[in-house]
């Protein structure tokens, strides 16, 4: 379960305060996967980072009674001068996972070949995403935080991701940022729409998509 307790997150930009969330409280129960919808710049990725705990709320708090992953996104979370394999070792250690097991798992999963032993700086964005996806799938989290990363790689890799993801969904939930309605419907049961600092929670993802489409048509 993840609980947002009177959560406020604001940014000051040139003297103007912009709210991502303003005094928001609600609970995401275990067993439901959430899709985050909103226009560009609404703060979907920021909300994901807040839930992960990589950034702190302006006020209020987030209570996580679950094992939450790091946010998986395109920007990557790797040290560029280390090789892919060394980065995986690092992640295994900080999460207390068996190092060799994770290294082997990601080697099989990400199919990076020789590049696995080359510095991440030399990777394409697709290769980085494969590595990131592999690492997080190798560790058992209750919640996987996914930022627009499902459409990674070629169709073979996508099929594989989908298969592993569906396996994971037996025991885990995902919180996902996506602009693809199809992906949201595939993976999520509930939805949150972000608009002007307001978060609206829907128990049914279809209702969330409907409101989001309406928002987009309006402005």
């Amino acid at each position: 379960m993840i609980r947002l307790d009177r959560l406020t997150k604001a940014f000051k930009l040139k003297g103007e305060t912009r709210y991502i969330a303003k005094d928001v409280s609600f609970t995401v129960p275990r067993g439901s996967s959430v899709g985050l919808l909103g226009r560009n710049g609404a703060g979907k990725s920021t909300l994901l980072r807040l839930i992960a705990g990589t950034i702190k709320p302006t006020s209020g708090r987030i209570i996580r009674l679950a094992n939450v992953s790091f946010p998986l996104g395109f920007q990557g979370s790797f040290n560029g001068s280390l090789t892919g394999e060394q980065n995986v070792r690092f992640v295994a250690r900080i999460y207390g996972h068996d190092t060799d097991e994770l290294v082997n798992y990601v080697q099989d999963f990400a199919e990076l070949g020789k590049s696995y032993y080359m510095p991440v700086n030399s990777y394409s964005s697709g290769m980085k995403a494969r590595l990131a996806f592999g690492v997080s799938m190798g560790i058992d989290f209750d919640y996987y935080l996914v930022d627009e990363i499902t459409a990674v790689g070629d169709s073979n890799f996508q099929k594989k991701c989908r298969r592993v993801f569906e396996e994971k969904l037996q025991n885990s939930d995902i919180i996902m940022v996506s602009h693809s309605n199809a992906a949201l419907k595939d993976y999520c049961t509930t939805g949150i729409v972000l608009e002007d600092g307001l978060l609206t929670y829907f128990a049914n993802i279809d209702d969330a998509i409907a409101l989001h489409d309406e928002n987009m048509a309006r402005r």
């Binding site: 705990g53 990589t54 790091f70 920007q75 990557g76 979370s77 040290n79 690092f90 900080i94």
Partner: peptide, 11 residues
């Protein structure tokens, strides 16, 4: 230099 690693909440 290590900003990317701050993406892990435990770091």
């Amino acid at each position: 230099a290590n900003r990317a690693l701050l993406n892990y909440p435990v770091v």
